[in-house]
């Protein structure tokens, strides 16, 4: 398997996590977290775990993000 793809994917994961850590806008952080979940799903599909990838795509990238968005809608969008 190609090492370049591995490293690109892992670098994307780390970059997305850093963006989530630094973003002051919680809405942006949640959306980046969703893309982080999707990249993780891709990684796991690639690692021979399609069941887990499917669960992560549906739960991690989908439901969790929606719950975060609802919570942000009910509270504040800006982090102080």
């Amino acid at each position: 398997m190609s090492l370049t793809f591995d490293i690109l994917l892992l670098l994307y994961l780390v970059a997305a996590a850093l963006v989530v850590a630094q973003a002051k806008d919680l809405l942006a952080a949640s959306i980046v977290f969703s893309s982080y979940g999707l990249a993780l799903c891709l990684l796991w599909q690639y690692r021979g775990a399609p069941d887990v990838a499917m669960a992560e795509a549906a739960v991690g990238a989908g439901i969790t993000t929606v719950l975060f968005l609802v919570a942000i809608g009910r509270t504040t969008r800006r982090e102080k």
């Binding site: 994961l13 996590a17 989530v20 850590a21 919680l26 952080a29 949640s30 977290f33 982080y36 979940g37 993780l40 990684l43 796991w44 690692r47 775990a49 887990v52 992560e56 991690g60 969790t64 975060f68 919570a71 942000i72 509270t75 982090e79 102080k80």
Partner: peptide, 24 residues
């Protein structure tokens, strides 16, 4: 981070990191 929602985003990143470790 002081924001509670941010804290839970961080906790979710920690969880997924552990999952990624176990899958690896």
């Amino acid at each position: 981070k002081e924001n509670l929602i941010k804290k839970f985003l961080g906790l979710n990143i920690m969880e997924t990191a552990v999952f990624a470790f176990i899958i690896a």
